[in-house]
Design a protein around this nucleic acid. Structure first.
Lengths: 121, 121
DNA sequence: CCGCATCCGTTACGATACTG
DNA sequence: CAGTATCGTAACGGATGCGG
């Protein structure tokens, strides 16, 4: 039961999302409409498959994602975001806003994406 | 120059803040008014001193914090948040909001803090 | 004292190969 | 297709040292 470092909600949030990959998965599912393991594994940041599998398991366990079988292809699992997960998207949005403003030093970076306001990938 | 994993602002933000400690330092300085190494080292989550030192150096290097000598005590350094750093606080706020809602399963947790809306520590 | 730096055992991460 | 197993590497974390 030694799950959280303190009673601080920031610390507890970071106990869950304080890594380099979890929020990228949430971005792909919550903002980019991905729903399968394969689609997630194909993210441009090249997540390792074991890392992806572990994070998905944790997010499902936390009730942030659901995992169901595809009706089309029985071998495929569908990951979907829950209401609890949707309410996490503002965190990604505020991070996006800050990063878009401060982490693109030259115009080339913006040109490469082709999008000015919301650069997801 | 292999600093960022992709052009995505979420990924770039996580390249900087995607760990369990950096945002806690920002919380302490930006929301709790701390300003010295000693105050930061005393956070309830018990950050290791080497970790603290490395994160502070990075944050100063990124222009998110400034480091100056105290005029009172020449041995003490004062860490202060910049405008760039202040604009990061909404990320902490949105994370706080989510965590406050979802990571306190029983009433005891809230009672222990004594605060309902913004539980920082 | 204050602010780290070093050392070092433990843990988490991450790339690749492999399996049901 | 959706993961596991393996294993080398990096990060964490506690203790301690040390210059200023």
């Amino acid at each position: 039961m030694k799950k959280f470092r303190s009673f601080c909600p920031v610390a507890r949030g970071l106990d869950l999302f304080g890594d380099k990959w979890t929020l990228l998965i949430m971005r792909d599912i919550g903002n980019l409409g991905k729903s399968t393991y394969k689609e997630l594994a194909a993210m441009p940041e090249k997540i390792a498959t074991n890392t992806l599998a572990e994070r998905l398991e944790r997010l499902v366990g936390e009730g942030i994602l659901t995992k169901t079988r595809s009706t089309r292809n029985k071998l495929v699992f569908i990951y979907a975001i829950t209401e609890k997960g949707k309410e996490l998207l503002p965190v990604i949005d505020s991070l996006t806003e800050w990063s878009s403003k401060y982490l693109y030093n030259n115009e080339d970076d913006h040109k490469k994406t082709g999008i000015k306001s919301r650069i997801y990938c």
